[in-house]
Every structure is written in structure tokens, then in C-alpha cells.
């Protein structure tokens, strides 16, 4: 059993709309899986079904070998969940929230206290432990919710847009904790709109559109599928006209942004060689020359049918 999550033909309807349409995939133990998709694609609905919050209309969900529909208590005991909207109890203090989670997960009291202290320190909340969550900022709430999800040392962690709306330092803190957890063997299922986050963090990425899973692969392989893009960015000391660049062979597109030229061609190697030849012939000086790899953004936009800019 090396699958942490195994999902088969998962489907959910809300009235006449099919929010999730026969999704199947698996996430291996120890992986960070990024779940991407445009707004309303069905990411939250899928996550809620996998975490046992709502029941699927059809399909099968195995969490570390436990069936989420028929053995929810055992499956949930293994999971930590950070939902889309932060949901700590506002009328309880941070400490009381953590202690409550300890009781709900059946943790021994001393262990829950020790864990809470460690987590509060790790998330820089120690001095706010006795304050009601009501008075917390968004970032503090989010860090607390993550601490609550980690209290019982879950083997599998679900996060639905954990860094959305947070400042750089809060999101860095959360992302570095995720990396740390993953190093210790925790499998992570991460829903995000942040392509950099997915690119830097995830072993596998799944892209969902209108309830259907349209791609699932590693970020690098996904980027390789966008082969139409071989771009270089170049800038010259001298002012030149576009016509000069147009005469190079195999050019697909040229754009002039600021002091840089962005040129896409059929072949990156040929493009660079022609640029060098051109500058020698015309007596130009190259200030900078970069090759531009397709980003996960490009993959995402192409696959989800967004406008390519």
C-alpha cells in the first residue's frame, strides 16, 4: 500500500451542476500533491469529499487504506485538514482551540499540551496563546488553524489555499513548515492558485477544470508539454527596428517590452545562434540574453483555456 490517497470516479452534483465529474487519481505516500484549477472548478468540493466533510454522489475514496465513506472515523484520525475558510472557534483562545482538538482526536493530555506548546512556538503564536481567536488577524488565524491540523501529527495533510490573502512572511512561514513536515514523511494535498508555490513545492500537480481532471503530472513534465514556446529575451545597447529581427529564420513572434525584445521561435538553439550572428553582422552589443522556459502559469493557462499573454 504505497498510496496515501486513492480516488476513483469521484462525482458530486449540486442540483443541476456537476461540481466534480468522475475524477480518479492517486497520491503516493510522502508526496506533495498540488491541486490546481480556476475558480469554481471543483477543487474545494473534491477536497471536502476526500476529507469526509461531504459525501460523494458516486465514487470511492481510500485514505491510507481506509475507506472514507464506510470507515470515516479511522480515515479522519489520520488526516489534518486546513479548510478554505479558517474555522477556529472565535470564542475560545488559541490554547483552548488546540486543547479541544486534542480531546476530539483522543490525544493524551500531556502529549496534547507538549505538542501545542511546540506548535505555538513554531507558528510564532506563543504570546497570543491566551487570547481569543476573535481578535486574531487573518494570518494569525491561518497559522493557528494549521497548528490545530498538525496537533495529532497526521500522516496526511489537506490544505485548501492555505496562503491566500496572507503577507509574504506568514506565507513563507507556512510553506517552510509544509516542506519541513514533508521531509518528516507527511503526505500533503495542497490546493492553490499560486503557481510558484505549486512549482516549487509539489512532486505532482493535478489540474481540474469544470469538475474534470485534465492533467496530472510532475511540474517539469507538464511544462515540457508546452513545447510551442521557445522564448528568448534579449536587449541591445543600440536602438534597432523590428524588421531587423524579423529576417532571422524560424521566428514565430516578436514583442518589444521596455528595453527588451521577447522573441519566440521554433528552436531555441537556432534562435540564439542567429541572434549572435545578427549582432556581429550589424555591429550591435548584446546587454543581456535570457532563455525563457514555459512556467506552470503557461501550462495552467493553456490547459484551462485562459488567455495567453
Amino acid at each position: 500500500m504505497s498510496d496515501a490517497i486513492l480516488v476513483k470516479d469521484l462525482t458530486k452534483h449540486f442540483g443541476s451542476i456537476t461540481a466534480v465529474d468522475q475524477i480518479s487519481f492517486s497520491v503516493k505516500k510522502g508526496e506533495i500533491f498540488g491541486f490546481l484549477g480556476p475558480n469554481g472548478a471543483g477543487k474545494t468540493t473534491t477536497t471536502r469529499m476526500i476529507t469526509g466533510i461531504i459525501k460523494p454522489d458516486a465514487g470511492e475514496i481510500q485514505i491510507l487504506g481506509y475507506n472514507m465513506v464506510t470507515a470515516p472515523l479511522l480515515a479522519k484520525q489520520k488526516c489534518g485538514v486546513v479548510p478554505e475558510t479558517s474555522n477556529a472557534y472565535h470564542d475560545l483562545t488559541a490554547w483552548q482551540n488546540l486543547m479541544f482538538m486534542g480531546e476530539i482526536f483522543g490525544l493524551p493530555d500531556a502529549y496534547a499540551r507538549r505538542q501545542s506548546e511546540t506548535l505555538l512556538r513554531a507558528f510564532e503564536l506563543t504570546e497570543h496563546a491566551g487570547r481569543k481567536v476573535q481578535s486574531f488577524s487573518k494570518g494569525m488565524k491561518q497559522r493557528l488553524v494549521l497548528a490545530m491540523a498538525l496537533l495529532h501529527e497526521p500522516e496526511l495533510l489537506f490544505l485548501d489555499e492555505p496562503t491566500s490573502g496572507l503577507d509574504v512572511s506568514s506565507s513563507r512561514l507556512i510553506l517552510s513548515m509544509l516542506r519541513e513536515m514533508n521531509k518528516r514523511g507527511v503526505t500533503i494535498f495542497l490546493t492553490t492558485h499560486n503557481m510558484d508555490e505549486a512549482n516549487n513545492l509539489c512532486h505532482q500537480v493535478g489540474i481540474i477544470r469544470s469538475g474534470k481532471l485534465i492533467a496530472i503530472d510532475s511540474p517539469e513534465k507538464l511544462k515540457n508539454t508546452i513545447d510551442r514556446l521557445h522564448q528568448v529575451e534579449v536587449s541591445f545597447e543600440q536602438e534597432i527596428s523590428e524588421d531587423l529581427l524579423r529576417i532571422m529564420p524560424g521566428i514565430i513572434q516578436i514583442s518589444h517590452i521596455g528595453d527588451k525584445w521577447k522573441i519566440s521561435g521554433e528552436n531555441k538553439d537556432a534562435l540564439i545562434r542567429s541572434l549572435v550572428r545578427l549582432s556581429e553582422r550589424e555591429g550591435l552589443t548584446i546587454i543581456s540574453l535570457h532563455t525563457l522556459a514555459p512556467t506552470l502559469d503557461d501550462v495552467f493557462l493553456q490547459l484551462t483555456g485562459g488567455q495567453y499573454s
Binding site: 485538514v81 479548510p83 474555522n87 476530539i104 482526536f105
Partner: peptide, 11 residues
């Protein structure tokens, strides 16, 4: 308050 969602995600 969405805290029900929390409870339901717990064992």
C-alpha cells in the same frame, strides 16, 4: 461560523 465543518472533518 464554519466550525461545524471543522467538527465534521475530525474523527
Amino acid at each position: 461560523a464554519k466550525t461545524l465543518e471543522r467538527l465534521v472533518s475530525c474523527p
